[in-house]
Amino acid sequence: MKTLLAAITATTLALAPSPSPDGLNQSLDPRQPVASGRTVLQAGHVDLGPRYQDNRWTIQVHDGTAVPSVWRQPSEVVLRVRDAAIERVPDDPAYAFLEQTAGTPVYVVPQTQNQDVVWLGWNTQEPGVMASVTRGVTMHLLGVQGPGSVVTYLQSGNLGAPQVLWHSARPYPQPLWVETNTHTHANWIFSKPGVYLLAIEITADLVDGRQVSGRDMLRFAVGDSASADEAFTAAFAGRLPSTGATPPAAAAPARESAAGGPGVGTVALVAAAVLLVALLVWLSIRGARARRRAIDEPEARS
């Protein structure tokens, strides 16, 4: 087995797409369809990313293994990390963040493509996102469920110090800022075989002042023996943290509230109700005074 250190000949940290030999140069067709049906992706180019279509913000999987490329719903995708991904943790203090003993076998989805392993990255290049988002998005890791740990990190092309992005042993949520028109790949390390769920939330501020937010699960079957069927049906058992972002239901239509608070229609209804109550109280007081005068006046004449 190769060591993890030898396996990682990573891309540079330049996040905007530019001509390069590592496959990061791409542009997305606004007409790319959304495919349906369960799919297991175990080799080839795959990206996680937000989409903004018809005033609806979603998280989807861009499947570059299909010809032509398609978008897929995360609930219908299992990312299989085969035994071909097994590497050994190097005897190097720079990788102490993996919290694994040197020589321990781990499953590596590498930052640069291995033709035998699914190549997972993320992009913010969907045309609706690029036209509607102010500067970028925040990708939050909300939780990890699985038999072992998961670590996602970047490493520069000159084998500089690893930059840890997400670590399942750290508190949640774990935010990651990504500018628009970004396409990048990272190293994903799974410490044990089995089924993993990664809860992801992506939020953004739109040019019209609204905030949008969406949540979904990435599903992994790590190792040749892991069950893809189990990964499709697995449910996240824990409670996911709040990021303070607008709930997804309040983020889609343009007519809804921008910050998750009460909308204009709600405020108007509340104001009308307050005015109605005040009017009823005033009429009640006025009626009581009139009745009192009617009683007092005959007594005064007698």
Rank of each mutant, 00 (worst) to 15 (best):
A258E: 04
S242P: 03
A272V: 13
A226P: 06
S227H: 11
T266Y: 09
P253I: 00
P241L: 03
A234Y: 06
T266G: 12
A245S: 11
A235T: 14
L240E: 01
L275T: 14
V270C: 06
T266V: 09
V264Q: 15
A234R: 11
T243Q: 06
A278S: 07
V270Q: 07
A252V: 02
A278P: 01
S227K: 11
G260M: 02
A273T: 13
A278D: 05
A273I: 10
E230I: 05
E230Q: 15
A278E: 05
S225F: 03
G260F: 02
P241W: 02
P247D: 08
P247F: 02
L279D: 07
G244E: 08
V270P: 01
A234W: 06
A226F: 05
T233G: 06
A228F: 06
A237L: 13
T266L: 08
L275A: 15
A259T: 12
G223I: 00
A273Y: 09
R255S: 13
R239W: 00
A271T: 08
G223W: 00
E256Y: 09
V264I: 13
A271P: 02
G223Q: 01
S257N: 04
A235C: 11
S257R: 00
T243F: 04
G238P: 05
L279Q: 08
G260P: 02
A259E: 11
P241R: 02
T233A: 12
A258H: 07
V274H: 13
V277L: 08
L269P: 01
R255M: 11
L279A: 13
A234M: 10
P262S: 09
A268N: 14
